[in-house]
Design a protein around this nucleic acid. Structure first.
Length: 279
DNA sequence: CCAGCCCCCTGTCGGC
DNA sequence: TGCCGACAGGGGGCTG
């Protein structure tokens, strides 16, 4: 669930409590939460390092230390928060990795255990598979169009590929496609130049709107301060199956595309003509 | 290379 | 009430 807007909100919320802190110890109770290096080396290397700054790349949280970067991916249910060492938190029962600080603790809670932590001295190499940041200058219309050429997979599936654009997930893919009036199951290569240009713009709008509302708290996601994001209250289609389209009143439809629940308005996002209109 | 599918995990919810 | 399967969806890995 945490996509770019949620991860960005987490990073913003962690800057204040984390920058300037020093890591004094590391604890874990689930091996697989630690991607690399191996837990012993991880703990030895991370201990003693000062937190210099925080950043984000795609859906990855970057905690820049003196000599390494602590990289964290929340996947579906990860949560990160800083608490006083003796303070209890509602998500504590799912904490699988913890970093003790000179003041407080950074806790990584993860119900489904899909999340991963990494420690690396070369972030660029670790994340070299990622495409451009959709809100950055490298995300060009020309590059976006080029990435749609010759692809017959569904446009939604293409938007979810992180090597194409970094940070887009199921929710904001649906929202961007609705805003652009493009049916999610259309082959990527079937988009016209003007449709691609429109989608490039609405993708950025959907993500930016998500950041402004501090992310979507649908079930597990919370801001580091424990509060809920409000982005879910501003969705056009996600999570609104069988409800009226906010733009035309037609009933929002839910189908599966790329093995994911996919929401769209059959009126605002029509299936292209000509092609196999089954039934 | 590409596209489709399974799997990793646990909590929640609908159906019987 | 309790059990069970479906579903949630990021992304690595395998297959045809």
């Amino acid at each position: 669930m945490p996509e770019l807007p949620e991860v960005e909100t987490v990073v913003r919320g962690l800057r204040e409590p984390l920058v300037g802190r020093r890591i004094t110890a590391m604890w874990h109770d689930w091996q697989r939460s630690i991607h690399s290096p191996a837990p012993d080396e991880f703990a030895a290397r991370v201990t003693g390092q000062l937190v210099r700054s925080l950043g984000r790349r795609g859906k990855y949280i970057l905690i820049h230390l003196e000599h390494d970067t602590l990289v964290i991916h929340l996947k579906m249910s990860g949560r990160l928060y800083v608490a006083a060492a003796d303070a209890r938190h509602e998500a504590d029962r799912w904490v699988h990795v913890r970093f003790d600080l000179d003041q407080g603790q950074l806790r990584f809670s993860d119900v489904r255990k899909f999340g991963r932590v990494y420690l690396t001295s070369d972030v660029a190499a670790l994340l070299s598979h990622l495409g451009p940041e959709p809100l950055g200058d490298n995300f060009t219309i020309a590059g976006f169009r080029e990435g749609l050429r010759e692809r017959k997979l569904a446009i939604k599936a293409r938007l979810l590929q992180q090597e194409f654009v970094a940070g887009v997930g199921n929710i904001y893919a649906d929202e961007a496609l609705f805003r652009a009036g493009i049916h999610p199951a259309r082959p990527a290569k079937s988009l016209t130049d003007s449709e691609a240009t429109r989608l490039h713009r609405t993708l950025r709008e959907a993500l930016q709107t998500g950041i402004e509302h501090e992310g979507a708290s649908i079930n597990w996601y919370r801001k580091p301060d424990g509060g809920k994001g409000q982005s879910q209250n501003h969705f056009f289609v996600y999570g609104r199956p069988e409800q009226p389209c906010l733009r035309c009143g037609a009933q929002i439809n839910k189908i599966r595309v790329a093995q994911r629940g996919t929401h769209f308005c059959p009126n605002c996002q029509p299936e292209p003509p000509a092609r196999a209109a089954k039934s």
